[in-house]
Design a binder for these strands. Structure first.
Lengths: 226, 226
DNA sequence: ACCTTGACCTGATCTAGATCAAGGACTCGG
DNA sequence: CCGAGTCCTTGATCTAGATCAGGTCAAGGT
C-alpha cells in the first residue's frame, strides 16, 4: 500500500513534474511498492528490464560483477532519485545489478505503462533525457577520475563533492560504508583509509563517518598539485 | 553546400528515422556543414553547447583534460554516429572536448531547431533516448573494464569487440592510432604495445594496423584466466 | 642521398597502489 | 561482562604498470 511519503516522493520526482497527478494512478498502484532489506538484490545483470525505479528511502548500488566474483560499483543512488531509465531503451536487459545497501523502499514504474504515458505527455521524455544526461555526465567524470587522478586526488574530489560548499569550513557525514566508497572510487579499502589519513595534513578530520574540512579552498589545491 | 553523401548520412541516421525528409530543411542548411582537418578541435570542455553533431566521414574523439595537460579519451565516434546529444539537456555546456583525429566532415544540428522538431515529432525523443542509453552502456562497460580487468584483458576485450565474430578466425584493421587506443583503454602506449606482444602466444598476429586472430574462442579464454 | 618527423617497439628502472597480515574499536545478543 | 561479528586502521611486502631512455622503420621534404 502506498503511504503519503510515497506520494510525496512521486510528486517531487523530476520525471513526473510534467504529469497531471490525476494520471499517477495509470502508472502506479499498490503493487508498485518494493521493500528491500540490507544487501538484498533488486535485479541481476542480464535480467529482463521490466521497470525503472524511484527510491523513497534507503540506498541502492549498481554494480558489475567480474568473472572471479569481485564487483565494480558503477553508481549509488539515494532517496528521491530514479534509476534504470536507460534500460527501457536498451534491448530489454539490465546491464548492471542493483542491490540495496540498507533497508530500502522503492516504487517500480513499469516500462510499458510509462511508454504509454510518454505518448500522452511527451514532456516526460524531456525529463528522462535530462536525467540520463546527468547520469552520463557522472560516468564521464568517473572515467576521467580513474584515468588521470591519483587515489589521494580522487578521495579529495569525493570529499569536496560532498562538502556542499566552495570555500570556508564544512562538515558532513559519509553517505555509506567506507569500503563501498573505496570501491566507487576504484581503490581498495586500505588505500582509501590511508588516503584519508594523508589528507589530515591538508586540514581534514575524520572521526567515524563524520568528516570536517577545515578549509575547502585548501583541500581544492590538492587536486592541482601532487 | 550539402552533398548527396551528406543527405545519405542524414537519412540513415537513427535520430531522424522518425522525421519526414521534407522537414529536414527546417533542421539543416548549407551552413550546417563543418569541415575539420586532423587534430583540429571542434569544441572545448566548457564551451556553450549550441549543437549536436552527425559525422559524415572521419572520426572524432571526446576527451577530458587534466590540469597538467594530459588527456583522457572518453569515446571515439566514427562515420554515421551522432554525439553531444546529452549536452542539449545539461546546463548548456559541453562537459568534454571534441577533436577530429583525421580529416572529418560533419553536420551540426542546432539544439534550438531540434527542440522545435521534437515538439512536432515526439518520436525523435525516443530515438535520442535510445542513443543516449547506448552511450551510457558503453561508459559503464568502460568503467567495469578499468576497475576489474588487467591491461592484457582489456586489450583482448578490445580486439574481440572489433573482430565482429564470436568464433573461428578473424582479421581487421585497427580503427585508429595505437596511442589513441591505448589511452581509450586507460593505459600507456608502451603497455599497449607490450600487451599485444604478449597476446601473440594466444594466437594473434599484429602487423602495423592489421590484426589477425587465429581463433576468437581461444582469445576469449584470456578474459577469464590470468 | 640526407635529414626530419611521427609512429612504434623494447629494455631498464621506479613507484603507486594492491595484497597479505595483524590488530583495534564498535555494536549486538546473551 | 563476555564473545563474536563488522568495520576500520596500520604495517610489511609485492607487483602491474608507469616512466625514462634509446632505437627502428617508413614517409616526406629539400
Amino acid at each position: 500500500m502506498l503511504t503519503t511519503d510515497d506520494w510525496d516522493a512521486i510528486k517531487k520526482c523530476a520525471l513526473f513534474k510534467a504529469m497531471d497527478p490525476a494520471d499517477f494512478g495509470d502508472l502506479i498502484d499498490a503493487g508498485s511498492v518494493v521493500k528491500l532489506s540490507r544487501n538484498q538484490q533488486l535485479f541481476a545483470h542480464g535480467d529482463p528490464a521490466r521497470a525503472l525505479f524511484l527510491i523513497v528511502s534507503g540506498q541502492v548500488k549498481l554494480t558489475r560483477l567480474a568473472a572471479d566474483g569481485s564487483e565494480a560499483v558503477v553508481h549509488v543512488f539515494g532517496a528521491g532519485e530514479t534509476f534504470a531509465e536507460a534500460a527501457m531503451f536498451m534491448g530489454g536487459r539490465y546491464p548492471v545489478a542493483a542491490t540495496a545497501i540498507m533497508d530500502t523502499r522503492l516504487i517500480a514504474i513499469s516500462n510499458g505503462r510509462l511508454r504509454a504515458q510518454v505518448l500522452v505527455k511527451p514532456e516526460i521524455a524531456f525529463a528522462m533525457l535530462a536525467s540520463m544526461a546527468q547520469h552520463l555526465k557522472a560516468l564521464v567524470a568517473q572515467i576521467e577520475q580513474m584515468k588521470l587522478m591519483t587515489t589521494k586526488q580522487r578521495v579529495a574530489r569525493f570529499l569536496l563533492d560532498h562538502a556542499g560548499k566552495t570555500d570556508g569550513a564544512a562538515n558532513f557525514t559519509l553517505p555509506h560504508d567506507k569500503a563501498l566508497i573505496a570501491n566507487r572510487l576504484g581503490m581498495q579499502p586500505e588505500t582509501f583509509s590511508r588516503a584519508l589519513a594523508q589528507l589530515t595534513s591538508h586540514g581534514i578530520v575524520v572521526a567515524g563517518a563524520e568528516v570536517s574540512i577545515e578549509d575547502v579552498g585548501r583541500l581544492t589545491r590538492v587536486l592541482s598539485f601532487e
